[in-house]
Design a protein around this nucleic acid. Structure first.
Lengths: 230, 230
DNA sequence: ATCTGGTGTATGGTATACCAGTTGTCGCGC
DNA sequence: GCGCGACAACTGGTATACCATACACCAGAT
């Protein structure tokens, strides 16, 4: 069944991006798939070695590494080496605090700007896990949890809010493996989520903001008390 | 009076940094000193031209430009050119919203962590301008205003909070020249500032957070209504 | 055996030459 | 006079060679 309408192929996507951006993506993916907090993790990178393995010259690779450096994922020490950065506990707590500030603002905005349908869609992220099931699905829950928060931030309709928090989540996700995922905490988390959705649905601006902030600050306290880093 | 103790000069500071970071600083300073929103502003940059003018090769210059690109100050269009970015009004409003979120969180933290002396020091930024003087010192006020807000954020004791807002201020400052600085708005702004300091001194966490947020969102509304960009 | 000084090597920083795509212009043909 | 196409020049992307410095290792003296 051939369509009479001319089908324009999206050329932008198929077009190979610059080697720099490809190297950037590859490195970022490699870092995220690695448990950098494992004691035996090899945190050193070598420009020439990577250049050979990627099959590109050092120039685009260096630009990719420079970007990762400015994002805080790696640290470039002149004439010493390039090292994958392990965030300190203080830095992680700091990131969660900023996250709390931004997501609570997003919730505020959502009560004013999001449609009923958009808010209702949040149920997908929450209802999938009854408080009873959490124990069994603990693995999945961790990802669903992040997606729920990203969804709220998306409702804030702020590109910048989304952009900054995405970077934060990237780092926070890296320590997820170190987090002692308590069954009880997850259960209470689900309760919090439901209350948050309720507040958004009722368009209770102040309440939604407060609930989101308190919820994320609870995570902060939890990490502060129970997660071993440093 | 010659001292018998050998005086070691700190060599680290005098040591010239990398060409990349010097080029980065020079470019950033050049951009901030330029009114990029003037209609006749030349927004195009040329790698080779800059390379000649700085007296360095294209390589470190490119790395500096790449960093400015990732920060959103310039946009690198492959084989087209490098352009200084004019933020759209939407983006500026977005930045002010994020600013409000972060500073209000900083105020919250300040009520819990800052010392009385630190909070008292805020008076320096506020008392310098009585509501009567504002009209005469409108020029200075704009800078003092930013410094007041930076001081509050500093009390939050969060490196990340400071880092993100510094970048935001950089962009917002660029449109200051386009802002219609109304005498009346500045006067009310000072009143707001005094109330904020009072709330911090009284350690009223919720009130301080709210006042800071509302104050910055007022600026957002003002920009939205009275500043012409785009 | 230990300390010290020099030297080699590894590594990120910089310079430069070349590549590839975009754009504007000039000239030819209609 | 107008439109179109080829060509030249401009500009960012990439490859590569060389530079400068931090660090480890080794030889020699103590």
């Amino acid at each position: 069944m051939s369509d009479s309408v001319l089908k324009i192929q999206p050329i932008a996507e198929s077009q190979s991006q610059s080697l720099k951006s490809r190297a950037y993506g590859a490195l970022k993916a490699a870092i995220v798939n690695m448990n950098i907090y494992a004691p035996e993790a090899e945190l050193r990178l070598d420009e020439r070695d990577l250049s050979l393995r990627f099959g590109v010259s050092r120039t685009p690779l260096r630009e990719a590494l420079a970007q990762l450096d400015s994002e805080g994922l790696v640290r470039i020490a002149p004439r010493r080496g390039i090292f994958i950065v392990r965030k300190t506990k203080t830095e992680i707590l700091d990131m969660i605090t900023v996250w709390a500030a931004l997501e609570s603002m997003a919730a505020r905005l959502a009560t004013q700007a999001a449609s009923d349908a958009e808010i209702a869609a949040l149920h997908e992220h929450v209802d999938a896990f009854s408080t009873d099931e959490v124990a069994a699905k603990m693995g999945e829950y961790s990802d669903a949890n992040i997606r729920f928060h990203q969804a709220i931030i998306g409702l804030g309709r702020s590109t910048l809010l989304t952009k900054i928090t995405d970077e934060l989540f990237f780092h926070v996700r890296a320590i997820r493996q170190r987090t002692i995922v308590e069954q009880d905490r997850a259960r209470r988390s689900i309760v919090d989520h439901k209350e948050i959705v309720n507040a958004l649905e009722a368009r209770h601006t102040e309440r939604a903001e407060r609930l989101v902030r308190e919820h994320t600050l609870k995570l902060r306290d939890h990490v502060e008390r129970f997660v071993a880093l440093d």
